[in-house]
Amino acid sequence: MERMLAARLHVPSRTLRVEEVPRPQPGPGEVLVKVEAAGVCLSDVHLIDGTLTPLLLEGDTVTLGHEVAGTVAEAGPGATAWPPGRRVVLHAGELRDGAVFTRGVDYDGGWAEYALSRADALTPLPDAVPFEQGAIIPDAVSTPWGAITSTGQVRPAEAVGVWGVGGLGVHAVRLLRAVGACPVVAVDPSPVARERALAAGADLALDSADPELRTRVRAVTAGAGLATAFDFAGVAAVREQALSVLAAKGRLVLVGLTNQPLTVADGTRFSYLQQQIRGHYGSDMPVALPEILRLMEGGRVDFSTSVSGVLPLAEAAEAVERLEKKVGDPVRLILRP
């Protein structure tokens, strides 16, 4: 049996090891992909540090990596639409029996030399899009895209706010600019993140600790407040601050994950203004990925600056540490087998 390298997390001990494992074989309706690039996400960090735990994983060990791009190595029976050599992006999850299974969490992901995918969980990757940029689309780009277009239902000329300009929030700023939101207000305590937001197209970047934040948001929105606010930080204080500058009938979209309670300080005001809080997770990838790739091919968005570094698969632990400690303030680090 052929073998390959994979970065495997032993969940009970939270131990990450790069080790040799059997190379998987595609079964009926499956495709084996030679991995060319795999993104390192903060969710991976949280799986390792114990903040997140797989809910649907069979067994106690999983190959990490839900952001994956590569080329088709072999197609199983019934997967003839995917010839060897085809460039592809793997979806970050699959729907099984009504439940969402996340790649690299609930089943083996792409921090490996090869990865399995269902044939219906792949999207062709255009030649014009590098593997490194293609790899980050299934989460770092498609999640904010889904939050903007589906959950948030942002319309052109609407005033919007983005709290947390990290690996997802910076892409939200770019995408909001692309769909015509105006103005786009970014909020982050980090000066580096605020500079990044302005470079990505934000009209205004504010420190969350700024005592004049509410006044400045009201000023830039002609007193109306934000039609939609996005929480990419997953912090209770962020949500309270975003609600305080939300317009009448405004929408607060929760993208950042947290197990902390959600509170509304002034329930009467919230109801009187007919505001809404909407939860968001992932995206409809069969729809979102082709849309994003068309925007990239058409020059509407560019994610080249999002690739902050490329490391070999053997240095997966180093990549995790760099992201966790924000060494160099990375947006996305990429592993290459």
Rank of each mutant, 00 (worst) to 15 (best):
F303W: 08
L289Y: 00
T305W: 00
G267M: 13
T268L: 14
A242I: 01
G250T: 00
A247Q: 11
S306K: 12
R294N: 06
L262F: 00
V245A: 02
L254D: 04
Q274D: 14
L252H: 04
K249A: 11
Q260P: 14
S283L: 05
S244K: 02
H280M: 13
T263G: 07
S244A: 14
A265C: 11
R251S: 15
L243Q: 12
Y281I: 05
D284L: 13
A248M: 08
P261H: 08
T263A: 01
G298A: 08
K249L: 04
S306G: 13
F303M: 09
T258Q: 04
E297H: 05
D284M: 09
A248F: 14
R251L: 12
G256L: 02
G298C: 02
V255N: 03
Q274R: 15
F270K: 07
S271L: 15
G299D: 11
D302G: 11
T268W: 06
Y281E: 11
L243D: 06
L246G: 13
T268N: 09
K249E: 14
Y272G: 00
S308R: 04
S271T: 12
I292L: 11
Q274P: 03
R269D: 15
G309I: 08
R269T: 05
Q275G: 09
R294Y: 03
P261L: 09
M296C: 12
L257S: 12
Y272H: 07
V255G: 05
E291G: 06
R251I: 10
T305N: 05
G250L: 08
G279D: 04
G267I: 13
N259W: 03
S304Q: 07
L252M: 08
T263L: 05
G267W: 09
S283K: 02
G267S: 12
G250H: 11
M296E: 04
F270R: 01
D266G: 08
T258P: 00
G298F: 02
L257R: 06
G282L: 04
Q260V: 09
L289Q: 00
A247R: 15
R278Y: 07
D284I: 07
Y281S: 10
L252R: 10
L289A: 13
S271E: 10
F270L: 02
Q260E: 10
S271R: 08
Q260C: 09
I292Y: 00
R300I: 04
V301Q: 08
R294H: 08
I292T: 00
S244R: 14
R300W: 01
E291L: 02
P290A: 02
P290I: 14
D266E: 05
D302S: 07
L293G: 03
D302H: 11
L273R: 13
V307H: 11
G282V: 01
Q260D: 14
A247K: 14
Q276K: 12
V264D: 08
V264S: 03
V245W: 13
